[in-house]
């Protein structure tokens, strides 16, 4: 990791010094254990604060989209000949690069507006998993040494196998190496346990409709509608989200359970073929709602029905905006009868 960090800082510094990018989006050290914070560097001398470790959980593609679009808005009243382009350099692991690919596929910005600094990834730490394993004692210090994590808590010290605290989405990730990059840092990361990718979804699919609905409603009851999930998601970039539209108003603003359910269902269906399973929505949720169970089902359908993996290849057309003659259609009718 040390080496990766060192190389990352050097490359970032070079990009800024050579004016290849206007800003570098990366991670910096957090103020509390298990945390890092997204950071935005414009001065080559500040690149020393970049870090790359197991606590870099956020998908930074979200910020790339925001920065470019804010810049474009600021250029609206500028004369065409004076308009400037803003180039964003971004520290990107596999899932982040997939989100960038989705942005490019959806024509959100041009390939020339981003510089991708690819980093290999062995999974990030899910904060909730750690807290649960130390009985909610306050975590004072953590360090990762190879395959174990040492945690110092208010209630004593504990060593935890690293694989027990890795986020679920990372455990079975197919794309822990960048799918596209301009500069690649470090060497390729070893593959994750990909065979079990749909293990949880398969189990969930076997439940009855009532059981699945009960699970969904129980999870939704935890939601406080803070919209952290939506705001952390790189694929949620609508200028005005349907939940905030008022003419007409699609969803009530109160805490009626059906409104929360509608918000989450609609958001999830907007993710078909666009969710890269980066886990950001789960990681940012203050209440621990299991959103992944449902998103992963949509991902599985995309893969099994159409052999589509969101953002895996720049040349792939977006799932829902293309039709191929060989596309399966049987689900349109009565899938139960057909099988």
């Amino acid at each position: 990791m040390e080496n990766v960090e060192k190389q990352l800082r050097e490359e970032a510094k070079k990009l800024l010094a050579d004016k290849k990018v206007d800003v570098i989006v990366g991670y910096e050290e957090g103020t509390i254990p298990l945390q890092t914070s997204p950071c935005f560097i414009t001065n080559p001398d500040d690149t020393g604060k970049l870090v790359w470790n197991s606590f870099c959980s956020q998908n930074l593609a979200k910020y790339v989209h925001d920065i470019i679009h804010q810049h474009r808005e600021s250029q609206v009243r500028v004369k065409p000949e004076d308009k400037t382009k803003k180039v964003v350099g971004v520290v990107a692991r596999g899932c982040t690069t997939r989100s960038l690919v989705i942005h490019l596929q959806e024509r959100q910005y041009g390939r020339d507006e981003i510089v991708i600094i690819g980093v290999p990834c062995t999974g990030y730490v899910a904060k909730r998993k750690v807290s649960n394993l130390v009985d909610d004692n306050e975590i004072l210090e953590v360090s990762v040494n190879g395959d174990k994590m040492s945690v110092k808590t208010a209630g004593g010290d504990k060593d935890i196998p690293f694989k027990d605290v890795i986020a679920d989405n990372c455990l079975n990730c197919h794309f822990n190496n960048p799918v596209v990059s301009d500069i690649m840092i470090g060497s390729e990361a070893p593959p994750m346990d990909v065979d079990r990718e749909y293990h949880d979804v398969n189990k969930f699919e076997k439940l009855s409709v009532e059981e699945r609905w009960a699970y969904f409603t129980k999870e939704m009851e935890k939601c406080i509608r803070c919209y952290a999930c939506r705001n952390a998601c790189p694929s949620c970039y609508c200028k005005v989200c349907f939940v905030e539209q008022s003419q007409p108003s699609w969803v009530g603003v109160g805490d009626d359970p059906t409104d929360t359910q509608v918000f989450q269902i609609m958001r999830m269906f907007h993710m078909v073929g666009r969710c890269v399973d980066c886990g950001s929505c789960v990681e940012v949720c203050p209440m621990g709602v299991d959103l992944r169970k449902f998103l992963k089902k949509l991902d599985k359908d995309g893969f099994e029905l159409f052999n589509h993996r969101a953002g895996a290849d720049l040349d792939d057309p977006p799932l829902l905006s293309t039709h191929l003659m060989e596309d399966k259609e049987d689900f349109i009718y009565e899938p139960e009868e057909q099988s």
Partner: peptide, 13 residues
Amino acid sequence: HQSCLACGTCTYL
């Protein structure tokens, strides 16, 4: 504000 997700976690909790 740059890294702020504009979510309501801080104010709601």
